[in-house]
Each structure stands twice: as C-alpha cells, then as structure tokens.
Computed example of a mutant assay.
Amino acid sequence: MISVFGSANMDLVAYVAKAPRLGETVTGHAFRTVPGGKGANQAVAAARAGARTVFLGAVGDDGFGAEIRATLAGAGVDVAGLRTVPGPSGIAHIVVDDDGGNSIVVVPGANGAMTGPSGADLAAIARSRALLLQLELPMPAVVAAAQAARVSRVPVILTPAPARPLPDELLEAVTLLVPNEHEAAGITGESDPEAALAALLERVPEAVITLGGEGALYGARTGERLHVPAEPVQAVDTTAAGDTFAGALAVARIEGLAPERALRFASVAAALSVRRPGASSSMPTRDEIDAALG
C-alpha cells in the first residue's frame, strides 16, 4: 500500500496559443476544470499504475470538494482519510500554451487545514510500504508525516515542489528525493545536474532529478548512477508529468523493480500523461504503461 499525504485542488485550466506576459490579456481557445493538486495527482497516478493507494488530505465543503472526492474514488484511491473542512477547496489556476508548457497559481484553501497528520493518518502511514509527500501543505505537517514514516521504517519519497527551503528534519526522514532540474539547482546551488545530484546525495540516500526532454538522472550513496532518456513524445499538456512520474516511480519501488527498470516505468507513465490534456484525467492505467514498455 502507498500512502499519499498531500494537497487536493480543483485545477482551472485555460488553454492559449501563447501565455500572457505581465499586464497582457490574451484570448484562450478552451477551458476545463479538472481535479488536481500535487498530492491528489500522485495518488491517482499510483492507483492507476497498479498500487493500492490511500490519500490523506482535505477538501472544502463546496462543490469542488465533492468533485475531487468522487474523482479520487473513481480512480481507485481510498478516500477514507480525505477530510472535509468548512470553507473553499484549494484551487490551481493553470495556463497551458500550445507547446504544452504551463504556469500555475495555487490558492491553498482547505489544504491549509492540514496542520499535521491525525491519528488515523499516522496509522495509515505505518501500514504503508511507501509514503509520498510534496510541499503544497504547511511545512510542519509535511515534516511530521515524514518523521512518522521514518519511525515506522516506511520509505519516504518527496517531491520538493513548490520550491521552498527544506528543513534538515525533513531531509533526515527522506529516502528518495525527486526534484526537477530547477528545484535541484535551487536546493543545492548547482546548475549542472550531475553536480546537483552529488550535492543532494550528501543530504538524502537516493535522488532522482527529472530533466524534462533529457530524461532522468538517478544516484544513490552506494555509488550507483543512472541516466534514463526521456520517451519521445509530442506534448499536449505537461501539467501532470512530474506527479505521474512520482506516483509511478513509487509503484515501481514497492514492486521491487531495479532502479533502471523503475525509472523507465515512471518515464513511460509520464510520457503517456503529456499526450492528453489535464492533470488527473491524463494519467495512464497499468495496462497502458505495460503496453508501452513492451
């Protein structure tokens, strides 16, 4: 079982030929509302990739909250740990251009109520084979969840996004850190991915730096280094790529796949996701991943 302690948002997605500059107004050609949030997205990705997945988070008592809950449940995610709190659900305003690039503004809403794991959350984490974390919840809550997993000897996989300073007490509990190249540079001060990887491994046992079209770079303190090329793909919407990669990678890890095979599994899942619009709605099933792997 994989537990995901994280955010749940409604994504408000506007599609444009070119993203507006500061002060500029542009006309879009489509608009969609899609349940998302980095935590919920990773939960859907893990569930669709074949793992029993429990989501621990919060939504508001509004229509968005009900839709987010239904979407998670429909994807096979256990939502018994999804709280409903008074007030609005979190939202993310996303602009996607015709090249598949995106910019995002997140308003946390109900996610701000996640000030720490509940007793039920702690019990779920202790039963898990991996805990997925991101940084869209209050930092004290993320640290508390990571520390609880460490006490229970549950591996912690952290996506350090949105980028912010990472306290030592969090990194001490992390098993595998999964930043993109920009986040890795921000954490380490190293713009070269190889140098950034070496610096990350001074703080965590394992790290994967995702490099977009250049694939992914893996390293472990044991000395192992791997570079897995990206799958060739014509991107429609890259919004879900990172979360799909993280969720699928967690599944590969608990299934005991060797690092190179696990990275390829996650890379294929991410490549499949960018071929379709939206976040949670774009994530591939296990059958789709296995067929693409061949």
Rank of each mutant, 00 (worst) to 15 (best):
P284T: 07
E255T: 00
V268Y: 03
A250F: 09
D290Q: 12
L272K: 06
R276D: 08
P284C: 04
S267D: 07
A262M: 00
A252Q: 05
A270E: 09
R286E: 15
E260W: 00
R253K: 14
S282V: 03
A270D: 07
S273T: 13
D290L: 14
A258K: 06
E260A: 15
R264G: 01
R276K: 15
V268H: 07
I254T: 14
G278I: 02
A279S: 14
A270K: 04
A291I: 08
V274I: 14
L272I: 01
I254S: 09
D290I: 10
L257C: 02
R264E: 05
R264P: 01
D287V: 04
R261T: 11
F265T: 05
A250E: 12
A271Q: 05
P259L: 03
L263T: 04
L257Y: 09
A252N: 05
L263A: 04
P277W: 04
A270Y: 06
A271W: 00
V268W: 07
F265A: 02
V274E: 13
M283I: 08
A252H: 10
R264W: 06
E255Y: 03
A291D: 14
A250P: 14
E255I: 01
A291K: 13
I289K: 08
S281K: 02
G278A: 11
D290T: 13
A252G: 15
P259A: 02
L272H: 11
E288A: 13
S280M: 15
P277N: 08
T285Y: 13
A270W: 05
A258R: 14
I254A: 09
G256A: 07
L257G: 01
P277R: 15
R276Q: 12
I289N: 10
I289L: 06
L249S: 09
P259T: 05
S282G: 06
A291P: 09
D290S: 10
L263C: 03
A250H: 11
E255V: 02
I254R: 10
A266H: 07
A270V: 01
E260Q: 14
L249A: 09
P284W: 12
S280D: 09
S282E: 12
D287A: 15
E288D: 14
A270S: 15
A266W: 08
R286K: 12
G256P: 03
M283T: 08
I289V: 13
P259K: 10
V268A: 04
L249P: 06
A266F: 11
P277A: 12
G278E: 11
A266R: 05
L249K: 10
S282D: 07
E260Y: 04
L257M: 15
E288T: 00
P277G: 02
R264N: 03
A291V: 07
V274A: 13
I254Q: 07
A252C: 03
M283D: 09
L257V: 00
V251W: 12
L257H: 14
G256S: 10
F265K: 03
P284M: 11
R261V: 03
S280T: 15
A271P: 03
R253Y: 14
G256C: 09
S267R: 04
L257D: 05
A250R: 13
S280W: 00
I289F: 12
R275F: 00
A258M: 03
V274R: 13
I254F: 10
R275E: 15
A250D: 11
A271R: 06
M283G: 13
A291E: 15
A269N: 06
R286D: 12
S273G: 02
A270L: 04
E288N: 10
E255R: 14
E260K: 12
A279K: 12
E255P: 00
A291W: 10
P277Q: 13
